[in-house]
Design a protein around this nucleic acid. Structure first.
Lengths: 134, 134
DNA sequence: TATGGACCCTGTAGCCGCTACAGGGTCAAG
DNA sequence: CTTGACCCTGTAGCGGCTACAGGGTCCATA
């Protein structure tokens, strides 16, 4: 057993999460409440550092807090099939694909509006015109 | 002069905005407060319908509320050069491009994580592994 | 004239995922 | 013994709505 512990600041540095974010994760029950020192400081174990790293990576991959919660739950049941994990990941992938498609459609529309601008006065501005009704 | 007026519900139907959203826009000063009927109902003019349509189209194109506010302000100064309009639109386009690029990078990473999954048990799941530290 | 239902009103709280205070306590170095 | 970096709790704010609760108004029908 390593007796190593970390303060919240050290945990933040190690994982790249902000101190406030770590406390937020604790508040919403994503990260279990750690032990406290005599001075009431949070004191984290290496296992908790690992858990936060997991959370960070999942968040960086765009998983929602709810999905992260589910993934964390699954990651503890080592004997189960990882189908559920796969399902969550694929669902998220689909969502990302949808968002990309939406943004690309938006980009096309926006681009074509901008291309029309001859940059004269507002009165003849095609961008304003494109937005205006009638 | 048309004496035509609209209730908030009619305005909502005509523009596709929700009633609550219209009230919200009024609250934040995006849409000016309309006249009221004897029964204290909001009563909108065609010009106000036009303004809301403008807002909706700009929002649909992904402009932020702040940008919409700026565009609305500019659209009233008909003699000014439309450079400022163009600048706002291009800035937004750049932002959209950045978001697309970010999502595409994310998509690649997520895709490669998912591809590794052999769908056995959680213990050997590559997705969980990819998220786990160490 | 009464009643029902569709509409409208205000005000407030919730969503997500943090972020930013304010107003204090703790701890180690000099 | 003071300074300054860190930590604590609690609350409010961001954007852009959305969703109530608890009422008022208006119009058609019985």
């Amino acid at each position: 057993m390593t007796g190593e512990t970390y303060s919240i600041g050290e945990l933040a540095k190690a994982t790249g999460a902000k101190v406030e974010t770590i406390r937020y994760y604790e508040r919403i029950g994503l990260l279990p409440a750690p032990a406290r020192t005599d001075g009431n400081y949070r004191s984290y174990t290496p296992a908790q550092l690992g858990r936060l790293s997991f959370i960070r990576r999942a968040r960086d991959l765009g998983f929602s807090i709810g999905q992260v919660r589910a993934l964390l739950g699954l990651s503890d049941q080592r004997d189960r099939s990882c189908e559920a994990v796969d399902a969550i990941a694929r669902e998220h992938l689909d969502e990302v694909d949808r968002r990309i498609a939406d943004l690309q459609a938006l980009r096309r529309e926006l681009g074509s509006v901008i291309d029309q601008c001859g940059c004269g006065t507002i009165a003849e501005c095609r961008i304003i015109e494109a937005l205006s009704p009638g």
